[in-house]
């Protein structure tokens, strides 16, 4: 019971909020975080797609080693890595057990391992790119590759509003708990309690829907007074927003190193 209580403390809403802000803002001082967003997108365009079409073990292993290195350089929080590893192992293991059940043998193991490596390369590449960018940088970067202004606005809006919304949801939920009556019998495996909490968590959205509707209206009216409807489509505004972006020496250096590494790897994989 003590253990459960400890877990509950760690899973509190406050803790979640702190963890989130850490993920967003904590690691923007690393070497990769200082790169231009366009460099990172270009890099990701290769590492996010290419592994699907490579079936060579040596090349895949090399790519995995490279993305592991970049991930270590970005100093991602351990929680995210743990979730990733568990997910990859879970999917691979599940498929392995199921295919053994259907009369396969251990020959399935090798291709499944390759598939897992591919997925790992892709996920690590996306962690490298997207966890190292701060939200401001990400939204400017997206704007620069032609994503509509509404999307980058939504990213900044999300980061600002999330703490407020989470707190409000927590309040409503607690109010329902105070006014309501928890089931007296816990039921087998606490199922009555679980059902009660699930029901509350769904019903809590009713007041929240109404209050968020009001808030959305206020936001849009505030945006209108600043002429945002025009700003989303005006090229001059976009130019002004993108003026902080600059490709520096470190960007070219990073791209050159990646390119050299990949070329060497492909040559190696081709001849062995």
């Amino acid at each position: 019971m003590d253990y459960a209580k400890n877990m509950m403390d760690k899973l509190s809403i406050e803790q979640a909020k702190i963890e989130l802000l850490n993920t967003a803002y904590a690691n923007d001082r690393t070497a990769i975080a200082r790169l231009d967003p366009r460099t990172l997108f270009l890099w990701y365009a290769f590492f996010g797609i290419a592994p699907w079409f490579i079936h060579n073990t040596i090349i895949l292993a090399g790519l995995l080693a490279f993305t592991v290195t970049t991930t270590i350089m970005t100093k991602v929080s351990r929680l995210i890595l743990l979730i990733l590893i568990l997910g990859l192992l879970g999917q691979g293991g599940y498929l392995l057990i199921a295919s053994l059940f259907f009369g396969g043998d251990l020959a399935v193991l090798q291709p499944l391992l390759l598939l897992t490596v591919k997925l790992a390369v892709i996920s690590l590449a996306s962690i490298t790119v997207f966890c190292s960018m701060s939200p401001e940088k990400l939204s400017i970067g997206l704007l620069s590759i032609g994503v509509p202004g509404q999307v980058s606005f939504s990213i900044s809006y999300g980061y600002r509003m999330l703490p407020v919304l989470l707190e409000e949801y927590n309040h409503v939920f607690m109010c329902y708990r105070l006014r309501g009556k928890a089931p007296e019998k816990k039921g087998l495996l606490y199922w009555r309690m679980a059902a009660y909490f699930v029901k509350l968590s769904v019903i809590s959205f009713y007041p929240l829907l109404l209050s968020t509707a009001k808030r959305a209206r206020t936001t849009v009216e505030a945006l209108e007074t600043k002429g945002s409807k025009n700003a989303f489509t005006n090229p001059a505004v976009k130019k002004l927003k993108l003026s902080s972006l600059r490709m520096g020496g470190q960007d070219y250096f990073f791209l050159a190193i990646s390119f050299t590494f990949i070329t060497a790897l492909f040559l190696l994989g081709h001849y062995y």
Partner: peptide
């Protein structure tokens, strides 16, 4: 994105 689980193209 905010939980650090953004999968890019996926």
């Amino acid at each position: 994105l905010m939980l650090g689980q953004f999968g890019g193209f996926g």
